[in-house]
Amino acid sequence: MNLDWSVVWQNSGALAQGVLITILLTFCTMLIAIPGGIVLALMRLSSSRILSGISACFVEFFRNVPIILLIYWTFYVLPVFTDISFSPFGTGLLALALNVSAYNSETFRAGINSIRRGQTEAALALGMSHMEAMLKIILPQAARRVLPVLASTWISLFKDTSLVSVIAVGDLAHNALEIRAQSFRVLEILTAMAVIYWVLGYPQAKLVDRIYKKWGVKE
């Protein structure tokens, strides 16, 4: 077999730019999806049936639609119906944020439910409102408890951003696949792509493990 790795170095600029977009997309998605997930979880757990129902519908819809379909739909269908159109990056960001918010909502909901009832009662007994008890006492504990789950969501998201390559967002996957198409160096480029994703993803996973060890709540 005749391997020519020089194609990787020759295109290192495009690959680096792709990496940058991939990281930026992951970061921005989580920046929306963490508050989004918290808001959805609080709505779901609220005593208002309307809020709870809206949140349940949102979550069940976006959790059960394939992300790639969501990306296509936001890109092709949304502008037709609403006259709203985003740049490819904005479209990818929106689709991913909707999906990950739905997942995060379930994560936070499980975390909040895992904090025992007595904690809420202790906060209420001090005279706090339900909202104060939630924000000051329950949510901070729940967030620490679900940190490992959020971390694996983060890692999944980091890789799932590659799906936005289908609408020509210049992320790592898109740029790499372009180079592959032009150079016909399939094996080299796909291998390089795998290595780059792994090298970037693994330290993130390790970092989160360490954060959890440091900040996890001990009882």
């Binding site: 007595g118 904690q119 202790a122 906060a123 209420l124 007994a125 001090l126 620490r144």
Partner: peptide
């Protein structure tokens, strides 16, 4: 009313964080 009553629980219920 709750502000004017203190409560101590069987399982302490201190805030661990």
């Amino acid at each position: 009313v709750r502000q004017r009553m203190g409560m101590v629980f069987q399982n302490f219920e201190l805030f661990p964080h």
